[in-house]
Design a protein around this nucleic acid. Structure first.
Lengths: 190, 190, 190, 190
DNA sequence: GATGAATGAGGCTTCATTCAT
DNA sequence: GATGAATGAAGCCTCATTCAT
């Protein structure tokens, strides 16, 4: 019978933090996070220097996971549309399966406790995403604006889509497809 | 010679709250808000039962203002595009002139302290907006989804646009126009 | 029947702090100090930004009181010995009546929480003391060393004297006289 | 090739404690002491039942070392002045070479965590010192007071001297000589 | 009505100590 | 013996809210 692995405690804290932040916002108390992680309150601070560190680490962890979700299986050789659609689906699907993380992210993104450094690191996607977005932006009607605008549109339209899915999961497929068309139209539509 | 109006004190509190919430998030202390409004700490609670009330009132006040900005001068008889563009411009322009309020709103909208009732009231625009959005949604490729989806897209694309403008104000015009085209394409683009 | 004066609460805190620091050292908890002052814990922080401020204020308050004790009635025109003896007696008597303050001071003086600025301000006596010490130092065998050395000897010999008095109060007079002779001999003795 | 001796770990702890206490006061954490000693946090408690034990042990260790410094080479047959001067020089020289220990001692001596027993043991010198002090006290003007008063004066004047030396090491010799003269004058000066 | 001093619950963080490995 | 992860009590401090003036 396997006994609880040593060191696992640390790993439990970010998940608990995500859960609590999703529920209560970034003002979720460290005590409640620790409790929900099944560790003593003091233990939290063995692993995270202070609450800000924890918050920032959770933030970048989620950002990383998002990127990984989009990176895995990415058809680097596909057509522009195929690539864009792949990214879209990967992102929206990830969001659908990670409601808690999305909710936590919504809180973290507007929190002043996330450092600018971390925020910037979060924005810089991995190369293939950035490249696809750049191509897309260059081709579309937004070509005279920074490609980051296209990227922001991607994120915000996807966010809107995911929110709608969360509210009405039975139509997930429909929203996902419609969301992509909306995005595509936003960038390239006449 | 106009003397300071009685009751002015109350009116100063929401503005101060907006300022402080924009700066510090919803965790801005009531003391700091009172101070910034030039009233005593205790006086705040003569006007607002508790902090939550204040927060909710600020929320709906801003929402109201947004609506008024969009309503005033609305060309009810114009073409669909004319009307949509009017709304867009009115909204984005309002945002450009109300940075503080936008920032406060960003904090308030994710706060769990804003009641669902209030949130819903915020979403329900005034009739002309809703009507325009419905028409738009019905005509576009999103016609099989609730018109609230189109409305959410309007808001999120506008938000993205305003953020870009805030970061690079010299290109405000460009962003505003491009933003509208993006929105238009999102809803109607082929 | 006089009711408790408003604002008196603040004044009670330093006395309580002295009491507690004397008993428990500078690690006396703010909670215990507040309790002993008869105020809520939070109230302490209305008056003192943080514990360090309180500690430093207590430190300089006691230093001030010491100086006042030595200054009041000082025979500025007396002989050197008369003046030195006056200072000695004033200081030692003050210490005898202020056991708690002396004990608190013993803790505060070695605490790293007292700022260098404050420490320096504490060292700078009022002019008459400094002047007397300078004259004394110049005349004695320590004339080739900074006069601050003589002053430090004054303080440390007095401290030793006061400690002995505290341990055996019946001999207070004897110790006080002997202490002065010791100090006098230290500076001028053959 | 000498390998690190077993049991060395224990010996490293008091030195580390001295270092840390000198830096941070008696509130130096056991964790920081352990780290500075190169042992695990928990190991400290294998050697010292608790922090108080460690503190007390460090205290008496330093006191012992002081005594040894004064005892070694003590001219038991010398004149009273020769013996007193020997003790003085030995003590002041020891202090000059042991700044850290003096600083730690300054913290420990005022700490309520040092037991009365230990304190008393610290005061009782080894016989030759006590004897010399008694002779001195008996001969001087303080002859009607307990000889411990003379001993306290020795310590406090020496302390003052060492502090001055620490602040201005180039004048060490001058201070040391002047300090002894001051002490001598304090006890015997006319 | 207006004030701001007073409150105390609750939040973050430190740290001496224990104990399974 | 040695380790260091884990603990939770206790410390400092903030803040929404009350209420005597």
């Amino acid at each position: 019978m396997p006994r609880p692995k040593v060191g696992d405690k640390r790993a439990d804290i970010p998940s608990a933090a995500i859960q609590k932040i999703a529920e209560d916002g970034v003002s979720a108390s460290t005590a409640s996070i620790a409790k929900s992680a099944g560790v003593a309150e003091g233990s939290l601070f063995r692993y995270f220097e202070d609450k800000d560190r924890l918050l920032n680490e959770v933030y970048s962890e989620i950002k990383d996971e998002m990127r990984r979700a989009m990176a895995s299986g990415f058809p680097a050789e596909g057509s522009l549309k195929a690539r864009a659609e792949y990214l879209w689906n990967a992102y929206v699907n990830w969001g659908g399966q990670s409601a808690r993380k999305r909710q936590a992210m919504a809180q973290l993104s507007v929190s002043y406790r996330i450092t600018e450094t971390n925020r910037k690191a979060g924005r810089e996607g991995f190369a293939p995403i950035t490249k696809t977005m750049k191509e897309l932006a260059a081709k579309g009607k937004l070509s005279r604006l920074p490609s980051s605008f296209a990227q922001s549109l991607f994120l915000s339209i996807a966010e809107t889509t995911m929110t709608s899915i969360a509210e009405d999961p039975k139509r997930a497929e429909q929203y996902r497809a419609a969301g992509f068309e909306a995005f595509w139209g936003a960038i390239l539509g006449k």
